[in-house]
Structures are given as structure tokens and as C-alpha cells.
């Protein structure tokens, strides 16, 4: 819980809830959301698809964005925090 509290220090500008989505759409949805945002803004992605918790951070980093944090927030829930390049 302490990590969760810590991560809350970074205020997300946008939250993208893609629970129910699987790869590659998890990344595509994330990518499309990032495209709409301004440089430096923070996006929080919520997913319940385990491979996405690994692959989405990898793919967004490849596109030059910064992955601030990947957090397991539930039994089948992950939160990925990304800063747009």
C-alpha cells in the first residue's frame, strides 16, 4: 500500500481503462491515447491482461515515451504510468 500511496504523487492527466482488451489492442489503445496528449503529460493505463503489463511498457518505451511505473494493483489488475515524450 505504501508504494501505491507513493505513486499517487504523480498526478495523471489522463486515465485509460482498457480492462477486457487483449494484445495488440492494449498497446494500440495506449498509443492512440498518447497521440492525443501533450508532451510531458502523464497517462495511467489500467489493464487486466497480464501480457499487456509486460508488453505495453516495452512498446511505449520503443516509441520514446517514459514508463514511470508498472504496478500490480489487484489480483488481475495492473496500472502502467507513462509520461509522453
Amino acid at each position: 500500500m505504501s508504494r501505491r500511496a507513493e505513486s499517487r504523487q504523480i498526478e495523471a492527466n489522463e486515465v485509460l481503462d482498457i480492462r477486457g482488451e487483449v494484445c495488440p489492442f492494449t498497446f494500440i489503445e495506449t498509443k492512440l491515447k498518447l497521440e492525443e496528449m501533450k508532451s510531458g503529460e502523464v497517462l495511467e493505463v489500467i489493464t487486466d491482461h497480464e501480457p499487456a503489463a509486460r508488453d505495453v511498457p516495452k512498446s511505449v518505451e520503443q516509441e520514446g515515451h517514459e514508463v514511470i511505473e508498472v504496478l500490480k494493483t489487484g489480483e488481475r489488475e495492473w496500472r502502467i504510468t507513462i509520461r509522453k515524450k
Binding site: 498509443k31 497521440e35 492525443e36
Partner: peptide, 10 residues
């Protein structure tokens, strides 16, 4: 094609 950097959503 959305995955291609030159295309994407825009």
C-alpha cells in the same frame, strides 16, 4: 497500420 509510427491514429 495503426502500429506503424508514420500512420498511427493521426
Amino acid at each position: 497500420q495503426l502500429l506503424i509510427p508514420e500512420i498511427g491514429g493521426r
